[in-house]
Design a protein around this nucleic acid. Structure first.
Lengths: 202, 202, 202, 202
DNA sequence: CATGAATGAGTATTCATTCAT
DNA sequence: TATGAATGAATACTCATTCAT
């Protein structure tokens, strides 16, 4: 019964996807220890037991989410952007615009950013985690920053520090997006200002 | 023969103070649900029972911390600063310097900022919480921002939004201070840039 | 595929009933503070957690038991009896016989009587609790007593006081039933003597 | 310093006496597990620690109370009464009058009766506790009952059973005395009726 | 596979007991 | 000796996980 088996796998995949997607938001809002499986299940709209059909444990579900975040396509995006034959100012502008749009449109994007940053903060010594999503994100951003510093469009300072600063602010507004119903989002200009000099001063 | 009741009250006050101070850091790092009373007690170096001599429950202890934060002297400081007969640029510079120093020197300051921001984020509708520490902090900061916008030293934009942005970044580095052992603190210049234009452009 | 929700409710109802019934005996024997949830669960033969699936707290379970006792069918029985067109002596005889049989046959009856009386004693001002099981029980009994006093078969004295006396003795033997393995139960005659004159003297 | 040492012992004795007397009432009302040392100390008006100066443990204090009750002078009274050269009716009347007076006048008497009966009920197999206060009390009472049955003044039935019944009712009214503020005490006649036939029928 | 009732290890809280003053 | 703050073992309660249906 290849067809039925096929369909079956499909259904399984869908449910698993649903759980991961919804859990991401819930975990981002409530944290790992602040999330009860019973509440999470109710939030998703499934039975508690169902979660254990797809994941060995609460921790396993969390890890799966972690893995998803790290395999995000955002890094490839950024990599591509960093190699484009355009000015750093333009790259930063494009990146910032894209981030702001994602933040506004997609709660899941905010959840991803939030969880990712929190994981990083939670790690004992995050400076050494060279292989993580975060550090790659940071590195490509740092590259652009260095390019911008050469071009004179980006403020002075250690590129990694500035990269860290920039993504920190992104995290900040991801939090706001998740937790507050009404708030004023900063403008693209505001976020760019973390890195870019005033145009007149170049 | 009652233990000199003066001395007794003193001892009680000291212990309560100690518990609150140490718990502040612990809660800031681990969150409410991530904090086990047994671990907290061990961390403070007292018996579990002792916490319950001074606080009705884990929640009660947390509320007490919240109350403390809201009665912080920082607001009065800022109020005083906002009324000084100096330029907004100078006020922002002083404020930023003071914050950076506090963050570096005092883990408890970082804990206060962290807890305070998290509480604010947790509230259902934080826009309406006019009477809280946060909103006063924001308001005085917004006043300075408006002054600066008139003087031409501060970037354009809604003053409250910029105030929120500024303190958000402070929160960000409070988190880094609490969670990471080695990181590069942003400079006073970096933080000021959230609000201040490049001096050459005024 | 939800477990046939009819069957589900049924199972829940059964378990709740089981817990209440068994707890009644255990609480009657050990008192509220003398009852540990862990021991109670072991006694019932279920996990500790199960109790908390059905009841919010130890106190909640106790209240539920209290409620059950007050909705007991015994009152309706007594009311019916009090309105029968027979002599008070006969009513008292029937009532006493019925009580003695219940006490002997049904440990749960003894538990009910015990808990009920203890609750009444525990109340601050039990004279005013007009609406409780106890007071209705007392009132119907007092009615029969008054009838008997008119008929000359019942001893002189305030009817409520005698009613209280009568049920007090019932409580006494409920206690003996619960606590002692071997004791001599008083006879129907002994209990009747609280209220009834010697037949020869009417 | 014999005088000082003498005085010292006296003070100690007084405090110990005070603790025992007050605890008796408190334990009678609240039971062993329902009594918290902190509450008891507050009730007595002393510090918690003070109790442990005089007693090794809560259980030790309770035992001491138990011992006191068993060494009560009441038994000797009853023994004396049982040997007087008067009719059983008169003995029962005197005993009943004395009990009623004690119950009304002295809360501590009620406490003694209560604790004593409760201890008896609590024992695994109280039929065998021949040496206890209770059984002596019962035995002397049973003797009087037997005398009365010979004299024709006491109702028929096993003497020990009737003795148990009689003292059970005394317990009942001791409870009422302890727990209720307003209640109608039964009359001497009511209590005697447990044992004595109507005078006209002898 | 989906469910939610049942479970017990884990966590919060209480309370008898200790001990420095 | 008297005290009440400090303690941790005992107890109440929660929640991740299992499992029969």
């Amino acid at each position: 019964m290849p067809k039925s088996s096929e369909r079956c796998r499909e259904i399984r995949e869908e449910m698993k996807e649903k759980i991961i997607k919804e859990s991401m938001l819930y975990f981002a809002k409530n944290g790992f220890s602040g999330t009860k499986i019973s509440d999470l299940a109710k939030y998703i709209g499934i039975g508690q037991g169902t979660i254990y059909v797809y994941f060995k444990s609460k921790e396993d579900l969390f890890s799966e989410i972690y893995r998803r975040i790290n395999n995000s396509s955002d890094i490839k995006e950024l990599k591509r952007l960093s190699h484009l034959p355009i000015s750093a100012r333009q790259k930063i502008h494009k990146l910032t615009q894209s981030i702001m749009e994602n933040l506004k449109a997609d709660k899941n994007y905010a959840a991803k950013v939030t969880l990712n940053t929190q994981m990083m903060l939670g790690e004992e010594d995050y400076a050494s985690a060279d292989t993580t999503y975060q550090s790659k994100l940071y590195q490509y951003t740092a590259q652009i920053i260095k390019q911008g510093q050469k071009e004179g469009s980006v403020v002075a300072g250690d590129a990694m520090k500035l990269s860290d600063y920039y993504w920190g602010v992104v995290y900040l507004y991801a939090l706001k997006q998740l937790f507050t119903t009404s708030y004023e989002m900063i403008s693209v200009k505001d976020l760019e200002r973390i890195l870019l000099k005033d145009e007149k001063n170049e």
